[in-house]
Amino acid sequence: MARKDRYRAAVVGLRGIGAGAVKETLSGNRRAAPHTHASAHSAHERIDLVAACDLDGSLLDKFRDTWGEGPALYDDLDAMLATEDIDILSIATSDHTHANLGIKAIVAGVPMIFCEKPMTTSLADADALVKAVEDAGTAFSVDHTRRWDPFFRQAYDFIQSGRIGPVVRVVGTWGGTRALEYRNGSHAVDAVNMYAGGSPQWVVGVHEPPGEWAEPAPSALVQYDNGVLAFINQTKAMPKFTEWQVFCEQGRVRIGGVHSTVEYAATTPSGQEDWLERQLPTQKVYRSAMLSSIDDLIRRHEGGPETFANVRTGLMAVEVIEAMRRSHDAGQAKVEFPLARGV
């Protein structure tokens, strides 16, 4: 693809993560700003935010108040795609609409798509989006931000170095009221998939009742083809809490809070086998996960490697979530991969 010095970006879906203005350097929950689509495009060194779209006129007015007169505003995606020369489209609409809007953009010739998580909420939609992306050669990334979060990525790189041996177990915990099947469950599942490093072979899942929320909190055992066994542990019956633990043959890495910690087996000066613990060094300057994911998209568009949160990793997250549901509905039966379609 032709390289440009600057790329033209647009956002469809202007609530919260789509269009919020974020000015703080590091927010209380550890995310480096900017961490919304509009703010990331506005802050990126090689991007101009040129357009935005939403069906809700009040959100268009709010967007204008926040971002000024520069970006053109639309209440119809087809009109925006037909009028604007868009290089990158951020899709931050309701979860179930992502595939349809993504395919529209691909057909219209948009070369880069940054899709909010979850990629889709059905396997059929995920399959359709994968086909469209791969047939067109579109650069595509899902906003599974833990793949670029500095603490998660630091832990990932350390594990990949092999210094504490290969991965054998992964435990991912998401607690609190937002432990939801797709809404935040896609983050929990994708991070486990990332650290496990293989393809799922089978899933045994159970759903915690949704209560006042529309989505249940699913948990599951997942066996991967590289021998890694993972436990995805989600519950609303505890305060807000997230942590991932990756167990390797010679140690453990724990990711949570504002740092990553490694515990590893070592021989002390006295000759005794013991466990030592140290915190992985933290960075003084953070590049936000959103900016890093846009960097990744541009590299792919310009002929670089596949994005780290590509359409296939998005599909894998949807498949595991779907397998958890099928297992729960069948009385915690083992669900084998590849998943049957059309069920």
Results as ranks from 00 to 15, higher is better:
232 I>W: 01
227 G>V: 01
322 E>N: 12
178 R>G: 10
107 V>G: 08
115 C>S: 10
277 E>I: 11
269 P>Q: 07
291 L>Q: 11
54 D>Q: 00
146 R>W: 11
303 G>L: 04
295 D>Y: 07
95 D>N: 12
52 A>M: 01
340 A>W: 06
210 P>W: 01
211 G>Q: 05
40 A>F: 05
204 V>L: 08
308 F>G: 09
76 D>I: 04
225 D>R: 01
46 R>S: 14
219 S>L: 02
189 V>A: 08
281 P>I: 08
206 V>M: 12
214 A>W: 08
107 V>Q: 14
217 A>H: 01
27 S>E: 13
159 I>Y: 01
49 L>V: 09
40 A>V: 07
216 P>K: 04
183 R>C: 15
120 T>W: 00
246 V>Y: 01
137 G>D: 04
195 Y>A: 12
291 L>P: 07
314 G>M: 10
23 K>F: 11
300 R>E: 13
317 A>Q: 09
18 G>C: 00
161 S>I: 02
253 V>M: 09
90 S>Y: 01
235 T>C: 09
14 L>W: 00
321 I>V: 13
5 D>S: 11
93 T>N: 02
50 V>A: 06
256 G>Y: 05
250 Q>P: 08
23 K>V: 15
136 A>I: 03
55 L>Y: 05
51 A>W: 00
61 D>L: 03
317 A>E: 13
340 A>E: 12
277 E>K: 13
188 A>S: 12
103 I>P: 10
191 A>Q: 10
164 I>S: 00
229 L>R: 03
137 G>L: 04
106 I>R: 02
79 A>I: 04
54 D>N: 00
237 A>W: 06
